[in-house]
Design a protein around this nucleic acid. Structure first.
Lengths: 244, 244
DNA sequence: AATTTCATGTAATTCGTTACATGATTCC
DNA sequence: GGAATCATGTAACGAATTACATGAAATT
């Protein structure tokens, strides 16, 4: 899991551990991100497996502070020391071909993809590296899981209503609303995905139901249906509100 | 964490492990619930600590199948065997005074309450056992955390927008919307809490700002404000759609 | 000069899972 | 009588955390 995230980030850009941790916290992991105690060992494992390696010199050419004039061998010696270490003791990592391969494997592995929120989010963040088929599958499995869970929760709430206190009720109701919105969101993503699907030369043989929303599946009424306008992903930029 | 959930459930009703697992899955834990591999050891620990104990006979009087006529000592022997085991080999657990005390301690311990979703949800589910003060604190700390996280994420999204692909953008935007709705939900709960607060005889000395929503705190515009109608918790019952 | 931030790592511990092993009871 | 479900438990393992330990570079 962590490995997948690391490899995915290193695919875009060479980074050192500290920076990696920041990116991880910003983009994927919901709370706080990972700790150094798991990040560095993970990097070591990946390095041992030949999936990543330390880049000589690092991303930014770190301008080794040459102290004026010192000739020949001494200069070479001075320069050799921080070779694997960047300006500040940093170890900048890059992904290797083996790493790319490992990334593909980890990304494709759908073990517990739909039932684990973190795993799903992570894979969605790298969905551009998946073929259309797999991408759709990822979204639809997640949707199916949420739908099933919603059904179970609704059932449980209805059965235990009397037993539950106001706080638990509110918690469960809010949870269900969130799940409903998640499903609608997935519907939009799925619609967008189908819209840009590669037109199969096979003809209309492989039409797999016209996607968006079968109200029957909800096994319950009173849902804010919202049949997902086939607006291909989101294109809105956030308002540039801040300074500079 | 698990201990707290177990104790809380046993406070309401005596239960055996298997049933406990079901309740746990229904009410608290978002995905699938806990496994037996963690539940039973937890029960053992609690029993060893004197926080729970096996109930003689179990909750439902399990009608030991008396096989017609068998007199005196033999009947006593037959009856003695399942004494600690309920009809089916069940071990029905009940909470002890020590357990009640432990429950209070675990519930009050606010270590990582606001930053851990599971911990927060669990405590909210047992919020009725907290004094008003602590309940408000729980809600407000969670709210503050979400607000801060929202700020961080917004900032990160704005900074890295160019670098992010459509899927990651959608993921982050949806995540932010969810967080905004969570905050609004908390606002409603907090408002409800204040509405039913015990009127302090101290006078208007301890008025701690009129609660609901300071748009300034959002440090950003374009938020669907929704200033939370002071409707005391939720009173709507779900449509009784099913049978019986 | 002192403090903060950057940067990397190790060791012990926590919390949970999966897989395995067992057996009773109910339903068909 | 055989399968499904109920019911309890153990052992091996996994993934991550916290706490500890260290030190260089930038900032004040």
């Amino acid at each position: 899991m962590l490995e997948l995230a690391i490899l995915g980030l290193l695919k875009q850009q060479e980074l050192h551990g500290y920076e990696l941790k920041k990116r991880l916290a910003e983009t994927f992991v919901s709370g706080g991100g990972v700790s150094f105690g798991s990040l560095y060992p993970a990097l070591s494992r990946l390095e041992a497996a030949g999936a990543v390696r330390v880049i000589e010199g690092g991303g930014e050419p770190d301008a080794i502070p040459m102290t004026g004039a010192l000739t020949g061998e001494l200069a070479a010696f001075r320069a050799r020391k921080p070779v694997t270490r960047g300006s500040r003791g940093k170890k900048v990592y890059g992904i290797t071909p083996r790493g790319e391969q490992l990334f593909e494997e980890l990304l494709a592995a759908d073990s517990g993809t739909s039932d684990d929120e973190r795993a799903f989010n992570l894979r969605l963040a790298f969905a551009r590296f998946l073929p259309h088929e797999a991408r759709l599958g990822l979204l639809e499995r997640r949707r199916a899981y949420l739908l099933e869970r919603l059904g179970r929760t609704r059932h449980a709430v209805r059965n235990g209503w009397e037993r539950l206190d106001a706080y638990t009720r509110s918690l469960l109701e809010h949870g269900n609303e969130t799940t409903e919105r998640d499903i609608s969101w997935l519907d939009r993503l799925i619609a967008g995905e189908r819209a840009q699907a590669p037109a199969r030369p096979e003809g209309p043989a492989a039409v797999v139901s016209t996607t968006t929303f079968h109200p029957d599946q909800w096994m319950d009424s009173d849902i804010p249906t919202m049949p997902a306008p086939p607006e291909v992903l989101s294109a809105r930029r956030p308002q540039q509100g801040g300074k500079t």
